[in-house]
Write a protein that binds this DNA or RNA. Structure first.
Length: 478
RNA sequence: CGGAGUGUGGCUCAGUUUGGUAGAGCGCUGCGUUCGGGACGCAGAGGCCCGGGGUUCAAAUCCCCGCACUCCGACCA
């Protein structure tokens, strides 16, 4: 059986129509379902289990770096939202408003939180009085609502799930340290756990968060060459502290404003998983995040001893990996396709012939390699193979990104690169907004970030020719 | 917010041109046979044709007015 044979007819091929492929995978892999409210999706058990795994792992890393979880209200009074000017202007167009409670019109409209900066600020103003109260390292897992015009499951939904970290510090330097520390947490999580390579960098002034001094980002490249911001951290300086009057008394008994940060990742990460690792047969999940890591498929399960053996294997592996046994009365072929669509990293086939030979057949989801393993060795081989799949997926995604990263020295070259080899384009840049706008207008691309890992490609800005200040990465983004 | 498209059993759609008893495939339920890449037989269940108004003896079909979703652009995690 050739590896490139198309096993699943119900999913549109990626190279035929990537957008269609994406929604097909979302539906066929049972990740999410549409509802009667635009942009609001039902996250189905598989999609939610992936989110839960993301949550558990991230939460562990947040706690390790000293953070505590809290929960703040869903509603924000209009007056509170309006306190920081840049912030409210940034979010105003996409805020949903509650105007009535029952039949009564409210005296003040309530905003359904698009993010919780203002609520955290109000709270911090109440609870921070002394330098002894700092730092405050809070995080909340929550849903937020942004009234988006164009929505796509996981990538951009009206309501989405996320975590938002909000911290308060005594000095700008500490806030900056926190901002970069959390970017590292995100970057490491994406690469190690989701097998998604990222570029760490700073957003330009044009792209930074409303109300922030500096915004940092991790950027990933999807299979179609489109960029996706997979996580973001912000240093607010004392902008919000001044607007909300968050002050503490320092050792010298003088009032000081606090310095704040915020950082978040969302259910968009699931979209990234789909678009980085998926193939024409459906979802491909890295073992670390996969709700089911191994599925056992009994062959000819009506024949004596097969189901018993499969169950025995299940019990042997149950402590080592997340394993399921599919003993439904579907055909084996149907089951193969089904679990491939759902991205299960490894499949174990056990039939009468295998039992005779004392072996099982393992099939990798990522490359469809068939591996025959003696029954006596499965407990060592299965975890080994899963580890290898995790590594291979990261390596594959990394080489895809490298193959789709170009260097350009002019606006013409930026356009050409984006058209001929869609992906990231690195250039030098003069740090002027005008050049960003020009790229946006002519090449339909935005600046993704100014990478921490700089390269000296040229002395001049690729767009205007003036002396360059930094290297920047461009891309067409989701 | 522009441009395009689509709304008919759970799903994919036919039927609409030319008004006349609501269809197919898949899925689902039951029984039996199968089982190493989406099996098969038999028997069943299941529809206010997106909504509201017209026109007509008669509307899924013709005419108005809504609403929703999808895709492509502009804005955004």
């Amino acid at each position: 059986m050739a590896n490139d044979k198309k096993f699943v007819e119900e999913i549109t091929a990626m190279n035929v129509d990537f957008a269609k492929w994406y929604t097909d995978v979302v539906k066929k892999a049972d990740l999410a379902d549409y509802t009667s409210v635009k942009g609001c999706m039902i996250i189905r058990p598989l999609g939610y289990a992936i989110w839960e795994n993301i949550q558990v792992e991230l939460d562990r890393r947040f706690k390790e770096t000293g953070h505590e979880n809290v929960y703040l209200p869903l509603f924000i009074p209009e007056g509170l939202l309006n306190k920081e000017k840049e912030h409210v202007e940034g979010f105003a167009p996409e805020v949903a408003w509650v105007t009535h409670g029952g039949e009564e019109e409210l005296t003040e409209r309530l905003c359904v939180r698009p993010t919780s900066e203002t609520l955290f600020c109000q709270h911090y103003a109440n609870i921070i009085g002394s330098y002894r109260d700092l730092p405050k390292l809070y995080n909340q897992w929550a849903n937020v609502v942004r009234w988006e015009k164009t929505t796509r499951p996981f990538l951009r939904t009206t309501e989405f799930l996320w975590q938002e970290g909000h911290t308060a510090h005594a000095t700008y330097a500490e806030a900056q340290e926190e901002t970069l520390r959390m970017l590292d947490v995100y970057a490491d999580f994406c690469q190690d756990f989701l097998a998604i390579p990222v570029i760490k960098g700073q957003k330009t002034d044009k792209e930074k968060f409303a109300g922030a001094v500096a915004t940092y980002t991790i950027e990933s490249l999807m299979h179609d060459g489109q960029a996706l911001q997979t996580g973001t951290t912000h240093n607010f300086g004392d902008n919000f502290a001044k607007a909300f009057n968050i002050r503490y008394l320092d050792q010298d008994n003088t009032h000081q404003y606090v310095f704040q940060t915020s950082w978040g990742v969302t259910t968009r990460l699931i979209g990234a998983l789909i678009m980085v690792h998926g193939d024409d047969s459906g979802l491909v999940l890295p073992p670390k995040v996969a709700p089911t890591q191994l599925v056992i498929i009994p062959i000819a399960s009506h024949k004596g001893g097969v189901l018993e053996k499969a169950t025995d294997i299940y019990h042997q592996l149950n402590d080592l990996v997340r394993v399921k046994i599919d003993s439904s009365d579907k055909n084996p072929g149907w089951k193969f396709s089904e679990h491939e669509m759902r991205g299960v990293p490894l499949r174990l086939e056990i039939g009468p012939k295998d039992i005779e030979k004392g072996q099982v057949v393992l099939v990798r989801r990522d490359n469809r390699e068939k591996i025959i393993v003696a029954l006596s060795e499965i407990k060592t081989r299965v975890p080994e193979i899963l580890e290898d799949i995790q590594k291979s997926l990261l390596a594959k995604a990394l080489s895809h990104r490298e193959a789709h990263t170009s260097i350009a020295n002019s606006l013409e070259q930026i356009k050409e690169s984006l058209d001929k080899n869609p992906g990231f384009v690195k250039t030098m840049w003069c740090n002027e907004k005008a050049c960003e706008e020009k790229v946006k207008e002519e090449a339909k691309a935005t600046s993704r970030c100014i990478p921490f890992e700089q390269e000296n490609l040229d002395t001049k800005c690729a767009i205007c020719g003036k002396p360059a200040k930094t290297m920047i990465v461009w891309g067409r983004a989701y």
